[in-house]
Amino acid sequence: MHVHRFERLWLVGALTLIVLFIGTVTYGAVGAGYGMVDDTGGEVDPTNTTESENFRSPGVYNGSESDHYDVYIEAKQFLFVPGTSDPVRVPANSTVTFHVTSTDVMHGFEVVGTNINTMAVPGQVATVTVEFDEPDEYGLVCNEYCGNGHHDMEGSLEVVPPAQFNESGVN
């Protein structure tokens, strides 16, 4: 079988490029420590999320270390609890783990303009850990279609100076 010289060159070039792509992604996962959403959050009963140890009643909690916080969020048609009626509030200079689940259908949990972006799947808990350095305000948006009020499903996230956070307390 005759393979043209240019075609052989192209083949080698394409393979090199592919290996490079895989390399950068691997570096991102292993070297730079970008943690994917995976199965570590465990499972829950969607109609009774707090029954198992994998989920707590929605709200912000002190984490295992100082400066670490855990935020438990329920996504449901068409709200984030907390997030929609009350903003999620976390302090700056902290490491925050979001635990997100759904009590009805599929939803999305996106912190607008960041790479905090996960599915909220009934029966599963998604965990995403991020560091917040500066005080700031972010929007929350549901980015998976969840019914005819989907476009109303939004909320906000406030990263407040640590002093203010102490005032409002941890739920």
Binding site: I18, F21, I22, V37, D39, N117, V121, G123
Partner: peptide, 23 residues
Amino acid sequence: YADPGVPEGFKFIAMTNTMFLLL
């Protein structure tokens, strides 16, 4: 990739296969 409940290893295998699918 953004789903909970799917181990990272399987996402990684899918990613590698996808890149080879560029060929």
